[in-house]
Design a protein around this nucleic acid. Structure first.
Lengths: 173, 173
DNA sequence: CCGGTTTATTTCAGCGCTCAAGGGAACGGC
DNA sequence: GCCGTTCCCTTGAGCGCTGAAATAAACCGG
């Protein structure tokens, strides 16, 4: 085993600050969304994607790849969303293996009620805290990391960001 | 309801890049730690904290507050770690309500085997990707967010960062 | 066609987490 | 001393997720 280069003091501090900050930020946003809309972040993202899709419906697989999640996960998620009355499954006419997940009126209403509040959370805990310069830096840093990470998994970078873009607001944005 | 100020194009891009990057980074680090050490990040952090503690033991409550998690979560977590043979519960002599979680030899060995690999992951996916300037910026940004978020919850900021510091390497660092 | 592969989705077991509820020990005013 | 409160920890149900296996339909070379 080659010599181990541990983190120096500066790196330590950077690492732990980053770790804590992102963890707390996620937790906070999740908590607020849970309180406001009774759903986790991931389900919110699904609803947004559906709201933007033509006919407010998407194939299961497309949903899964768009949100960077497994088919299994999507199946469970849609199951729950269906139980909540926000989504309905509809069989696909061309391909009898396939299913559409379609946003219901109720689901759309829920989403539209949740979106402004979620936006406020994001502003309060991220955008309002940082200077214009810092936001620019954060964006560049994120893009570097993103391009590295998505290359790792043979994933289309555009696809990832496009999908996650959803996580902030529904179609009317 | 007052006028809603949606995210502009620049903000959108910043937000989604940040969102995707942190999500993918966490996922990647978790995946690698899972593959190398068969444990999630949170359990790793617990083992590191224990390895640094005097007598390699800590009270349940101290562990919980140090890792910013609920007593319940810690109870479950130590239960699993105990089942894995990495930790042992020992009753507290002074306070018969209390329990110590004590790192076993086996647990320490597991941790020491995992630490260098985990460090490599962190370097590969974060530190090696960013310039010196960007690392400095990232640190400042994280610290701003951290101080905001920890003030929200009436939490001691030092405590949070101190605990998370652990998440990179065991005592001998 | 027919048989094997690929594609689309579900199912199941199990993990880590949260939240609400509870037991048991210590503390503190009366 | 006693009773209520507080503190420490556990329990159990349920949620969101993962990974592997199963089903079932479409595709495709022979």
């Amino acid at each position: 085993m080659s010599e181990i280069r541990w983190l120096d003091d500066d790196e330590q501090r950077t690492w732990r600050a980053f770790l804590s900050a992102t963890r707390l930020l996620w937790a906070q946003l999740d908590r607020e969304l849970q309180a406001e809309a009774a759903m986790p972040n991931s389900y919110y993202a699904i609803l947004v994607l559906l709201s933007e899709a033509p006919g407010r419906a998407l194939r299961m697989n497309d949903l899964a790849t768009a949100t960077q999640s497994s088919p299994s996960r999507m199946s469970h998620a849609i199951g729950r969303l269906e139980k909540a009355g926000w989504v309905r499954r509809e069989s696909c006419p061309n391909d009898r293996r396939g299913w559409y997940a379609k946003l219901t009126e109720e689901g759309l209403a829920t989403l539209e009620a949740a979106a402004p509040k979620h936006l406020l959370s994001v502003r309060a805990h991220l955008f309002d805290q940082l200077s214009r310069d810092q936001l620019r830096q954060l964006r560049q840093i994120s893009e570097v990391l993103l391009s590295h990470l998505s290359s790792l998994e043979g994933v289309d970078e555009e696809c990832v960001t496009a999908a996650t873009a959803a996580a902030v607001a529904p179609a009317e944005l």
